[in-house]
Structures are given as C-alpha cells and as structure tokens.
Amino acid sequence: MMSSQIFVAIVAASCVLSSGVVTAQTLVAAQSNTERSRNADASPQPFLQNPDLSKSWTLVKTFSDEFNSGRIDRSKWTTDMRPWGERAWSSDNLSQRDGKLFIKARYEPHTHRGNRYFYKLGILQSQQKTTYGYFEARIKGCSRFPGLCPAFWLYSNGREKNPKYPKVTYSEIDIVEMLQAGWDRELRRPTEVNRIDCNLHTRVINELGKEEWIRPQQMPDVCEHHWDAPWDPRDDYHVYACENTPERITWYIDGEKVAEEDNLYWHLPMSVTLTMELRPPLIAWAGVDGRVPVPDASTPEGFPTEMSVDYVRCWVRKPE
C-alpha cells in the first residue's frame, strides 16, 4: 500500500506541474484523502498536523459513523424531533449516499400546533450522551449565504447533572458553526462567509440561586471564539474538531489548533449533534433564550440546499 508521505508528495508534484504552486489547502486535502484510504483498513485516529504522541486514542463507535450504508443507523442516531422555537425538523431532510450524510434545508411554509414555520431543517443527534473526548467531523457547508448555519456541536438536555459541578445546569460546545453572518462588534457589521465560530454556552445557578445564561454575549472572553479561514467553507470539505477534557476545551480545524479555553462549566453528559439551522435575515433574535421567524424575509430563493458530512468520529483517551 502506498504510504501517506508518498501520496502527498505525488499530489504536490502534480500540482507543481499543472500550476507551479502547492498551497497548504492542497496538502491538507491530500492528507485528508490519504487518511480516508488508510482508515478503510485501520482504526482511524484524530487528524492532527502535530499530534501529541503522549496521547493514545480509542475510537468510540457509538458516536462515530462513516455514513457508508444506504440508510441512517437508527441504533446510533435520531432525526425525528419536535420543533425547537423556530426550528422545524424533518427526518426527510437527511439522507446518506456515496459515503456521505446530507442534511437539507428547504422552504416549506407550514403550521405545527398553532405555530407558523417557513422552513424545514435537518438534525442528526446521538442516541446516547458523552462528555469528555475528541470529536471530529469532515464537513462541507451549504450553498446559501446568509440565512443558514451548518453546525457540529455537543449539548446537554438540561436534566442530567454532574454532582461534581452542582451549579451547572446546561453545557453546550459548538465545535463549528459556519456561515452564520454573525455580528462583528468591532467592525459593526455582519461577519463574512469565511468566519468560523467555535462558541460556548452554559446555564448556571448564580449566587442568588437563580439560573442564568452564560453565552458569548454575556461573557465573550470565555465563550466567544472564532477563526477567519483563508477559504470558503462552502467550496470543499474541511475537518472540524474539538477536544474536551475536565481541564480545557481545544478546537482544531484541518488538524491545526485554532482556539483554547479553560473548562469552567462544560462537564455534563451531551449529545453529539449535526444540524442545519436558520440564521438572520430569515430569523430574528428574541431575547437571550429565543429566536423567531421573520415572515417578510422568508423566501424560497436559494432553497433547497444541503450541507454534507463525510464522517463523524469520537475518541476517548486510553489510560496512561
């Protein structure tokens, strides 16, 4: 079998012959393809440019999927969920073909239990929950921008607790949210298409005994992280990952570390989740804990559209 070094060298040489230039993105793509080929015959390991050789990983199949079959593995994943706020999920918006998962968003005005919706979206959520580990997915964004957010994230259900952290009532780690067109407070305008968000959200019991949100808006120094990619996430697949430990949370994109934060609140059992969700101008923020549709902005233009996922994988550290 051809080694990964030889494969990457051949790809680089062919690029030089054709264009005279080898970009970092070309090499990352070549390494990713080699990784997929090698992993067909061996247990995959996290895709890292500079791996810590002191860490040894075990793949957790419960939260991992190569999406190689013709249908979604219902023993691992659920896709049929009731609406959350303005998010109307439809299991029909998920499919597997050609070794990939596709999550669709489509324009479909409808009413559910008296609430009006304009779009149907897709969600893939793990049947079981986990907390610490290394989480990785290879994703290509959807074509429409702005208005949608392909995302890979972990979140708790608000009921399960960790007795070591009794004041924490909710944990959410956004491994990646792309195409958000969020608000840039410094430039005072929506962010560009290449802004990659890696944010944190939590709820805690404060000193007065009341539950309160801690989010990027309330605590940006802890919860807000982003990275401006030198490429458009709609154009190709890239590897988005996060390691969660009791001490810290670290984000990686294409094997390079892009952000790190002390782990203050993110210790609860969480679901591994992939979603396609609405963003402004198709919705509006309605306070700290809500979103609402914007009927006047709702449009079929740019729909349907899909995000695609090559794989999702989860590892835990082997005991030292």
Rank of each mutant, 00 (worst) to 15 (best):
T191R: 07
R203T: 15
V309Y: 03
A13W: 10
E320S: 13
V258L: 08
A151S: 14
E256V: 10
T299M: 02
E186Y: 11
T202F: 05
N244A: 15
V272A: 03
P304T: 10
T111Y: 10
F47C: 11
V292G: 00
W231S: 09
H110C: 09
P146M: 06
W183K: 05
R248I: 12
R248Q: 14
N263Y: 04
V239T: 10
L200P: 02
V204E: 01
K140R: 09
D92G: 08
T250C: 14
M81I: 15
S156P: 01
T275D: 12
D236G: 12
Y311L: 10
G70P: 00
G122W: 09
E260L: 10
V176G: 07
E108F: 13
E211N: 06
L154K: 01
S126C: 02
T130S: 08
R87V: 03
D221H: 13
K140H: 04
Y134N: 10
S143K: 14
V294Q: 04
G133D: 05
N206A: 07
D254F: 13
E243Y: 10
A40D: 14
I10V: 15
T62Y: 00
R195K: 13
Q128H: 07
R82T: 15
G70K: 09
S19N: 11
T131S: 14
R215Y: 09
S69G: 09
I175A: 03
F118A: 02
N199M: 12
D73S: 04
T191F: 03
R203C: 13
E177Q: 07
F135G: 08
R159P: 00
V222R: 11
